[in-house]
């Protein structure tokens, strides 16, 4: 497969870490060099979180430079806007059309920017908007938003579907495998 740099951004608690685990497993199964960087601890308590996944023949830095990400997988709209400058000129933005208000917005100290999806579409060439929450509900668990989004990402990567499903089996606790497979397939087939 081609070298690819993927930035997964979202809100602590949304499941970005599990998504990156599945993604890393896919890279291993495709026999490329994989490096993943994530931050544990404080930011996982509802803060802005970013996980970086790099696939390639030779990868040095585990973190992606600004303007270099081939794909940004944004679990939340505001986070898509925040990390937009990391996207390469021909990169793909996949954004979950979900709004989670950060505390400054909740308490009225800041405003949640209006029309984020329009702004992303104006600024970027390739934007895919997904209602992942709706699809996760359809799959049977609102927490499966992360795997729905992986399904959407899967369409951008040159990896057979069965490799993804196998990676989900290897990574997710047994009792959640079926719901996550459903979520993946909904993202893969039904999201626009």
């Amino acid at each position: 497969m081609k070298p690819v740099d993927i930035l997964i951004v979202g809100v602590g608690g949304q499941g970005t870490v599990l998504a990156s685990k599945i993604l890393a497993q896919v890279g291993l199964d495709m026999d490329v060099t994989v490096k993943v960087s994530e931050i544990h601890g404080m930011s996982q308590r509802g803060g802005s979180v970013v996980t970086q996944v790099r696939f390639g023949q030779e990868v040095h830095s585990p973190i992606i430079q600004k303007g270099h990400a081939n794909v940004i997988l944004a679990f939340e709209k505001l986070e898509a806007l925040r990390w937009m400058s990391y996207l390469a000129a021909d990169g793909q933005m996949i954004v979950n059309d979900q709004e989670l208000d950060p505390m400054p917005v909740i308490i009225g100290a800041a405003e949640y920017p209006e029309g984020i999806i329009d702004k992303l579409q104006d600024a970027l060439n390739n934007v895919t908007v997904v209602n992942a929450l709706q699809l996760a509900e359809k799959a049977g668990n609102i927490k499966a938003v992360n795997v729905v989004l992986l399904g959407v990402l899967a369409k951008e990567l040159d990896v057979p579907e069965k490799v993804w499903l196998k990676a989900i089996e290897k990574t997710v606790p047994p009792k959640f495998v079926e719901v996550n497979k459903r979520a993946f397939q909904l993202g893969f087939r039904e999201a626009v």
């Binding site: 809100v11 602590g12 404080m42 930011s43 996982q44 308590r45 509802g46 803060g47 802005s48 505001l78 986070e79 806007l81 925040r82 950060p102 505390m103 400054p104 917005v105 800041a110 405003e111 949640y112 920017p113």
Partner: peptide, 8 residues
């Protein structure tokens, strides 16, 4: 862009 600090 509003910051998103960690919260309880």
């Amino acid at each position: 862009i509003p910051v998103r600090p960690p919260v309880l």
